[in-house]
């Protein structure tokens, strides 16, 4: 996206331009405000929140809410803080992302460079599977995970995320590899490289951009998932579920500042990934999945 240089800009007058900037800045405010408020208030003592103005900066700065959210807040029945859940999420996200991206890459390679009768049907089925409402699989999934003995465990969640992520990763890699010249694959075949060698030596080295997209996409989706975590998390609940438990717990005083600190903690990894590699993500997303 930022690679594109063309713009459809038209020449406009001074007043119009001022207006344009005004509108753009107002929207920036709209997007920033809730998060800004959350950050500011996570650094205030509780009485400043309930008694004061949410827009104002803290009079007494404190990181107490953060420490509390991280290590001692009441999550469900245990005062463990979010730390163990953060770890759960991490343990789940890494293998889920790695496996689904790997599968997506090799699937995309097969579906574009080793086409066979009926491959389009397979791709169609995969593509549709990206968009199903997960409610349709919740009931049997609960049963199957139980039967496999991985209900309520991290491997169970990894399996779920791989299964429902592989459609998207395949879509990305397929669209990316479709633009990769087939002649190169043929040249490598004549040179004597086999199926895996061609993938490894010819396609993978140029797959950087789409891998970034696939990894970010999967990372964001898996990290942010709530439905599967809440349904199948069991003893290994991910961060989102824990955060929801923290925020919506009905016992005791609502410690908003701790809630905010927790929410930001839950958002931190994806925000970080987004800040570091976001531009590649959007660019690749445009090229990869959504024909804009």
């Amino acid at each position: 996206m930022s690679g594109a240089t063309q713009s459809t800009a038209v020449s406009t007058g001074r007043i119009t331009r001022t207006l344009i900037y005004l509108v753009l800045l107002l929207f920036a405010l709209f997007y920033l405000l809730p998060f800004f408020v959350m950050v500011v208030n996570s650094l205030k003592p509780l009485d400043e929140i309930t008694g004061g103005n949410m827009m104002s900066l803290p009079q007494t700065w404190t990181i107490q809410p953060w420490l509390q959210a991280w290590s001692s807040a009441q999550i469900g029945v245990e005062p463990t803080g979010l730390r163990p859940y953060f770890l759960n999420s991490l343990l789940m996200v890494v293998p889920a992302v790695a496996i689904s991206t790997g599968l997506g890459a090799i699937n995309g390679y097969v579906l574009t460079k080793w086409r066979f009768r009926g491959d389009n049907i397979i791709f169609g089925l995969l593509l549709f599977s990206c968009f199903i409402p997960f409610q349709i699989v919740l009931i049997p999934m609960a049963t199957i995970l139980g039967k496999l003995g991985i209900a309520g465990s991290i491997p169970g969640l990894v399996l779920v995320h791989v299964v429902y992520g592989v459609g998207f990763t395949t879509l990305y890699y397929r669209n990316y590899y479709a633009a990769f010249p087939t002649e190169l694959v043929r040249a490598a075949m004549i040179d004597g490289a086999g199926f895996f060698r061609i993938f490894w030596r010819i396609l993978l080295p140029v797959s950087g951009p789409i891998t970034v997209v696939s990894v970010i996409w999967q990372f964001t989706n898996v990290w942010n998932d709530f439905l599967f975590g809440a349904s199948f998390g069991g003893q290994s609940q991910p961060m989102t579920v824990a955060l929801n438990n923290l925020v919506s717990s009905s016992t005791g005083v609502k410690e908003y500042n701790v809630h905010f600190a927790g929410a930001i903690l839950a958002a931190l990894p994806t925000l970080l990934v987004y800040i570091v590699a976001g531009r590649y993500f959007v660019r690749g997303l445009m090229a990869g999945s959504v024909k804009g």
Binding site: N224, T240, A263, A267, T270, L271, Y274, I275, G278, V282
Partner: peptide
């Protein structure tokens, strides 16, 4: 764009 990186749970909380 950044709100897209957040989970709906975080958005909801905010």
């Amino acid at each position: 764009l950044y709100p897209m990186a957040l989970s709906f749970i975080v958005t909801g909380t905010a």
